[in-house]
Design a protein around this nucleic acid. Structure first.
Lengths: 336, 336
DNA sequence: CTATTTCGCTTAAACGATTAAGCAAATTAA
DNA sequence: TTAATTTGCTTAATCGTTTAAGCGAAATAG
């Protein structure tokens, strides 16, 4: 893009100073009392020369890039892709553009992403924080960066967040299974110290305890970096070791996929031999012979709220806003 | 981020000029013969003050933002999410960061995205172009912007691209169905003038003609903005009008999903009553009782090549590089 | 008719970094 | 001893915008 047209070129062409051009192109011609004729000439010259403002120069001068950094676990995962899309649209409404990064739930990657984005002077960050990155977030906040944590947060930190009320969601999901007559309900979760996973497991436990089913509590936590095959093997081992299990709560979409795949192979009948509830829907599950009961997250609300909270923080960095949104339990055949 | 540390703060602390600090922090201390003691002091001061370079200022001065704009149809669609991820990683290897936009296959949206990104001085663009945006791309190129078209391109334009060889892919997919004994093969496509769809349809036609099955050629083209329900209705109508059809080629993942959903509801048996081949895999299809034969695209290759071509173009804007990559026909039960 | 206000524009600094050019002191060469 | 070179640093321009401050000329007020 060598032959870029600058404000100076317009100024030269019209025969005025760059200040006037800037005033006019920013719509301040009244306020700055620019003569009507010049306003017209400047506008025409800008169009004629095909002037395109340099947002970088503007950012440097204004101290604001009109840019939001979004760090998710992996943009290839539909859940985050869908969130990113909502965020993109909502951000655009306020003139913000998205800079994207995937952390792979890895603290080091997240750290370098945060550095990259903050060097690029993003006006704020929406982060799906990885396990063990509490300090990173705390430091960021101390340095005055507007941050919104999404999907999970650190209870020990006073940072804005927009998340699901995971405890309540699991509690109700398991309650539903119990009401349907299942008692020996197991849970397949990810190995993570992060609050969202702890709460999903906690809600499950609480529901079991409340129904006097504590003795049947069985949770397996699968490491995030396990391959699909390793995951299926682990689930197989878990079910072999606990043949009495009648129903399963899966803590994420991909765990549900892996689990169903295994259940399919083994010829286990859903829901007769095994009741199923999973987090986060997926077109995939429509094709399973028994449509799957799903804990649905309000994706659009999570995305828009995250952006709105962030723009609030950008204008007032002292604010702290926290949302724990409600799920919707979409009941289908797999749990009846 | 009010209290940012600038190079000037380091310079003041150490008692030198900003030039020296810049030289040292950019590793030019040898070349610029900076004294060993000062090098050490400057490094220490930078760490002590927690200096974070301002990439915006650097970009303005250097005329390069180390930023790539990525415009896809919709980042929420897993195909594009996966591509975005590959691109993100490959770009990071060369120090580039991604700025993201979704066009919804809409020419106007794409236009404003291109403007936004080019005002932000991206060093280059990877675009999945929307229908009817040939002029936009041509203008961009004329203005000297490095561009790589991905997934589709404009044959009438001499612009770099990385795409699938869609003609070949459809041709082989249909050839496979014919070899399996299907004759009355229909195709469900999107209504689009874009080359990728034309070629997918063209390859289908050619395969049918080659096998002397021209009389059975039946294609329906569904508008992109149809809802899931409208799409299913349209497919239903198509199959009602053409009850003799024995097999279907679906031109995209979401069409396959809609189609299978309908076929499921109607109780049509796959592959006995209907053979199926679809583009682009999806975990969903693993759960369909008959695993679906898929035209798989080399996602990783498309993504990495796109980035590599773009960085090539950035260093030499006169280059034009075109890739038409090969698919992999993953044959499963739905087509045998 | 002079003093004040308004009008319409220009000047120049600033944002934070990079880097060509230059300059004094120290060193080496002749 | 003088000239030339090397060393180690500083100065200042630059990238493209924005915007406070200022300055004549014209208009209005007194």
């Amino acid at each position: 893009m060598g032959n870029r047209v600058r404000i100076k070129d317009i100024a030269t062409k019209v025969g005025v100073s760059t200040a006037l051009v800037s005033y006019v192109l920013n719509g301040k011609e009244k306020e700055k009392r620019v003569g009507n004729e010049l306003v017209k000439k400047i506008r025409e010259a800008a169009i004629e020369l095909n002037y395109q403002p340099n947002q970088i120069a503007r950012s440097l001068r204004n101290g604001s890039t009109k840019t939001i950094g979004l760090i998710v676990a992996d943009i290839a995962i539909p859940f985050f892709g869908q969130l990113a899309r909502v965020i993109e649209d909502e951000a655009a409404k306020s003139g913000y553009t998205l800079i994207l990064g995937s952390s792979d739930e890895d603290a080091n990657k997240q750290n370098s992403l945060i550095n990259t984005l903050s060097h690029r002077q993003v006006d704020g960050l929406i982060i799906v924080p990885a396990d063990g990155t509490c300090n990173q977030i705390a430091n960021l906040q101390k340095r005055g960066m507007p941050i919104v944590l999404m999907d999970r947060y650190f209870p020990e930190l006073n940072v804005s967040h927009v998340c699901l009320n995971n405890y309540q969601a699991s509690y109700e999901a398991v309650g539903h299974l119990i009401k349907k007559g299942f008692q020996q309900i197991g849970m397949i979760a990810y190995q993570s110290g992060m609050i969202h996973m702890r709460e999903r497991i906690g809600g499950y436990r609480k529901a079991m305890e409340t129904a006097n089913l504590s003795e049947y509590i069985k949770v397996i936590e699968i490491p995030y970096h396990f391959t699909r095959i390793q995951t299926e093997k682990t689930i197989e081992q878990f079910l072999d070791d606990n043949k009495e299990i009648e129903a399963l709560l899966f803590a994420t979409n991909s765990l549900t996929t892996a689990g169903l795949n295994f259940i399919n192979k083994k010829g286990i009948k859903v829901p007769d031999q095994m009741g199923i509830v999973g987090y986060d829907g997926n077109e995939a599950f429509d094709f399973f012979y028994a449509p799957i009961t799903i804990v649905e997250q309000p994706l659009a609300e999570i995305g828009t709220k995250s952006v709105n909270v962030l723009t609030d923080l950008i204008s007032d960095p002292t604010k702290i806003i926290k949302y724990d949104l409600s799920h919707f339990l979409n009941i289908r055949n797999s749990s009846s």
